[in-house]
Amino acid sequence: MVFDIEMIKEVYAKYPERIAAARAAVGKPLTLAEKILYAHLWEGNAKTPYQRGGSYVDFAPDRIACQDATAQMALLQFMQAGKTQVAVPTTVHCDHLIQAKIGADKDLQNAMNQSSEVFNFLDSVSNKYGIGFWKPGAGIIHQVVLENYAFPGGMMIGTDSHTVNAGGLGMVAIGVGGADAVDVMAGMAWELKFPKLIGIKLTGKLNGWSSPKDVILKVAGILTVKGGTGAIVEYFGEGAKSMSCTGKGTISNMGAEIGATTSTFGYDEIHGALFAFNRS
């Protein structure tokens, strides 16, 4: 199943004109992060360049994802806003309220016994306001988003700091508080200070016991938990091209641990990798 393909096509249909406007406004070649940001301006085509780390900019994200812990407060707030439907495609994922103890089946049943009140609330509030609902046991929000909703060049927000995981599929995906998500659900713009941009060039190729995880663990060692604050991290180079999509997801995911606004990778050419490749 492909969700919201018409929305994705609409986003893509606007891209050439939006990028042309961004080029004219910025006046120099663009990073991927800039392209996605400028293609999602609330005002439409860019008229002026924004100052990185300075300008507050209104954006129009393409979708929203909420996990069951944060969705409760977000949707309780949304209910107060007096709307009939969410303004942009939204999903709720039940992954936080299940304690791991004995094993999948018993743990899931225990969660159902203990939290049915919350699951029923989320189920009904999702059903009422046009929100896609992923039941307990369906999976972890950011993996489900990567498998079903993320798309290259898209912009999404999510009420969880690891929303940034969708950078693995070339999105600008940003973790927000429930209150921000409520704004966008209610049809309002989403405001963000235009981020600074950190470029990480990956040369060479992973081999042996090294993995995408080691890339981000090394980056965390270099930048520390504060080093990415206020910045989008954009990965590029041969090493990025040869890496799997879910590996890019891992790297993007832990961008949250360096405080980065988000991380992303280009939808680029590959060199020599096979469909189901063998790393040995």
Binding site: L30, T31, L197, I198, I200, K201, F236, Y267
Partner: peptide, 22 residues
Amino acid sequence: HLTGDDEVYANPEAYFDEVIEI
């Protein structure tokens, strides 16, 4: 449009605020 421009990746110091190479 779904990746950075070639000039950016060829000369990243001119376009990013900080560049790290691994």
